Lab assay of single mutants.
Amino acid sequence: MAAGGDHGSPDSYRSPLASRYASPEMCFVFSDRYKFRTWRQLWLWLAEAEQTLGLPITDEQIQEMKSNLENIDFKMAAEEEKRLRHDVMAHVHTFGHCCPKAAGIIHLGATSCYVGDNTDLIILRNALDLLLPKLARVISRLADFAKERASLPTLGFTHFQPAQLTTVGKRCCLWIQDLCMDLQNLKRVRDDLRFRGVKGTTGTQASFLQLFEGDDHKVEQLDKMVTEKAGFKRAFIITGQTYTRKVDIEVLSVLASLGASVHKICTDIRLLANLKEMEEPFEKQQIGSSAMPYKRNPMRSERCCSLARHLMTLVMDPLQTASVQWFERTLDDSANRRICLAEAFLTADTILNTLQNISEGLVVYPKVIERRIRQELPFMATENIIMAMVKAGGSRQDCHEKIRVLSQQAASVVKQEGGDNDLIERIQVDAYFSPIHSQLDHLLDPSSFTGRASQQVQRFLEEEVYPLLKPYESVMKVKAELCL
């Protein structure tokens, strides 16, 4: 049975990233139509530049190519590739079939990587351009969430054990800070992308030097003109047959890092959902379990974690691919890159769409948070109580021993009897502590235990987050809708 299948058929496997999760716009960027249309555009740009620099290419040939950029006979191309065992030459023939007058000058002087690699770089750039505003929107939604809850005390956790208090907004800023680093890295790697350009079979530009009869300047002009037509500021000066596969490492490393950030955020949300302090959106008709109707599973956060793990592992592909590119190139890269580049971007696209949807509907339960604080705060307040007693004339050592005994009794009630923490009640009825009984409410005010959390939130948002989001103001209103 021949390899390949009808990918629109229910009898043929289709990647869930495309069929179930990723956005239509990201799927289109990695589609065959987008790819092969870009090949034709690159052939047109090459012909236009070659004509401008004096090669015998007519206006009629150029116009014929322009008129057929979208006229792609995919069936013919597939048949040609089956016959020739070469995808680029299959599309040269297919393009030439609908451009008979231009057929002889299509791909003039070029090698397969002229269309293959340059198209990949265009796709990487455009895919990054799709991700950047999506990530900015996630940051914006979380920034709104953090600002609104900047002063809401909550129990902090280290080692997932109760620690000092923080605020809900401050905790959210930990998430935002990681995503801001990801946004900066995505922008950097996007701006650092260079075009492969017009380089020939081993990167020496020998074929173009021959076409222009040894004119170095025209060869350099050709490279520059096509690079500018493709919208790049610069091209690699040095290439082998391909652009260095280190570029793929750079791009997928940034995406993998984004995956790590999203995994951490969504894990926190899942843990908070278990504590009943916070939940992701839950639709009115949504079913959490087929057997347990009360369940409210954090399905979206779980999906993000599941896909983020996949995204983090994909960076190993370009690392290994770059390491086995012998001399000017081997074909070890080809099949692998067809999979890992598309999957990385479709996965990143999915987790950003999902995280935006989550961040637009996060639900906080202040009463649950308050109750958990009441359970733990008495123990945390013991040092403040000791200091207040010393100020009232008591002995630190005597007070410490009193607190120690009462704390152990209260802990026994919590752990052995399943009761509430009654340390404060014990202190309130103990005559030894009568000098500070009137101060206990103040000493137990949760806001006095959150330090500068709310001020940190305000400063972080104003100095770091809002300036970073400013270039994306025009796209901030787009909502994230999930079908599944």
Rank of each mutant, 00 (worst) to 15 (best):
I427P: 08
G116C: 14
N185H: 09
G8Y: 12
Y432K: 11
Q439N: 15
R426A: 08
R137V: 15
I106D: 05
A322I: 15
D144L: 14
T158N: 03
G288V: 01
T330Y: 02
L275C: 07
N274V: 12
Q428W: 13
A103T: 12
S23V: 13
L352P: 00
M312W: 05
Q221L: 13
N118F: 00
S257L: 14
D182H: 06
A2E: 13
A322M: 12
N384P: 07
K35D: 04
T167S: 13
F232W: 07
D178F: 07
E279L: 06
G197E: 02
K170D: 04
M389N: 12
L135Y: 10
K264E: 06
D32H: 15
L128S: 13
M476K: 14
L331P: 02
M181T: 14
E279D: 15
V363S: 04
T382P: 05
A342F: 15
K101V: 08
H7D: 08
Q221T: 11
E50N: 07
R396S: 05
L132D: 11
L461D: 05
K35F: 02
P56F: 08
T111R: 04
Y294I: 01
N68K: 03
G361C: 08
M476F: 15
E401Y: 11
I369P: 09
H442Y: 08
F232D: 01
E79N: 08
I424M: 13
G104M: 12
A3L: 13
H107K: 06
K264M: 03
I62E: 00
F282R: 02
A480V: 15
S19C: 15
F433P: 03
D117F: 03
N357T: 11
H86P: 01
E425G: 10
H93L: 08
V29S: 10
A77W: 04
L131G: 04
A110K: 00
H437P: 00
T58V: 13
E148L: 06
V92Y: 03
V363K: 03
G169P: 04
A308K: 01
Q416V: 11
F208D: 04
Y432A: 13
Q164T: 01
R426C: 00
D59W: 04
A90N: 15
E50H: 15
Q356A: 13
A342W: 09
D420N: 10
L174P: 15
L423P: 05
E481S: 15
M387W: 07
E64S: 07
D248E: 14
D445L: 14
S15K: 06
L271M: 06
P435K: 05
L128T: 13
D317S: 07
K233A: 06
P16V: 15
Q241F: 00
Q408C: 04
P298S: 05
R234T: 11
R426W: 11
Q409P: 03
L186D: 06
M312I: 12
S151N: 13
L17W: 14
A308T: 07
S412V: 15
S447H: 14
L179W: 05
N357C: 05
M316L: 12
P298I: 00
L174T: 12
S407P: 07
K233C: 06
D59Y: 12
H310P: 03
I105V: 10
T313H: 07
L271C: 11
E279A: 08
S19W: 15
T119H: 15
K35V: 11
C305V: 08
G419H: 10
V457F: 04
L165R: 03
L314R: 09
L211W: 10
Y365C: 12
S306C: 07
L186S: 12
C180F: 12
H91M: 12
E370Y: 13
S9Y: 12
V189A: 03
R270A: 00
A143N: 09
Y432M: 12
M278N: 04
R20V: 05
D445P: 04
T267W: 00
G394S: 14
L443E: 01
W45Y: 07
D6N: 10
A49S: 08
T119F: 07
Y472V: 14
F449D: 13
T227S: 07
K170E: 04
R329H: 07
C266W: 03
R190H: 09
A78G: 09
Q356S: 06
P133S: 10
M76L: 04
R296H: 06
S257K: 10
Q63G: 10
D420L: 06
F345P: 01
N357R: 10
W39V: 08
D445H: 10
T154I: 10
L69E: 11
R337W: 02
G418E: 02
E148A: 12
A49R: 02
L319G: 02
S301I: 13
A235Y: 10
A143V: 04
E48W: 01
Q285W: 05
V368Q: 04
E220K: 08
R149Q: 14
A22V: 09
I373S: 04
P378I: 10
D192C: 00
A348R: 00
G4T: 10
D422F: 15
S454P: 13
T244R: 01
E401H: 09
H93I: 02
P293T: 00
F195Q: 00
R196I: 06
Q61L: 03
A256G: 12
A381E: 11
F282C: 13
L311G: 02
Q416T: 08
D349G: 07
M76V: 11
Q285G: 07
R141F: 10
G203E: 00
L468G: 10
P318S: 07
V254N: 15
L311E: 02
T154N: 08
T313C: 10
S438P: 15
D178C: 05
Y114H: 02
Y472F: 13
K147N: 15
V189I: 13
Q286V: 03
G231A: 07
T154Y: 05
R303G: 05
E462F: 14
R270L: 04
E277I: 03
H97Q: 10
R83Y: 12
K147V: 11
E425Q: 11
I436Q: 05
S359L: 06
E417R: 08
T350R: 06
K479V: 14
K402R: 14
I369L: 11
S447F: 13
G418Y: 00
L211V: 13
T382W: 00
G240V: 03
V189L: 15
S323V: 04
Q458E: 14
N384Q: 10
A342G: 11
K199Q: 07
F74K: 10
Q286D: 02
E48P: 00
L311V: 07
L255S: 06
L307R: 00
R37K: 13
N118T: 15
N357H: 06
F36V: 12
I176F: 01
M299C: 09
E343R: 05
F212P: 09
H159Q: 01
R309T: 09
S31Q: 05
Q205K: 02
L255P: 02
G104Q: 09
V88A: 14
I427M: 10
H159G: 01
L377Q: 00
N353D: 11
I269S: 00
R83D: 14
N353V: 10
M312D: 00
R188T: 12
R374K: 15
H93N: 14
A22I: 12
E60G: 07
M389A: 07
S151Q: 15
W175G: 06
H310W: 09
Y13C: 13
R372A: 08
I385H: 01
K187F: 10
K66Y: 08
F95E: 01
S140W: 05
S151I: 10
A90T: 05
I339Q: 12
F379H: 08
K477A: 15
G203N: 00
I237T: 10
E148M: 11
S334I: 04
D317Q: 14
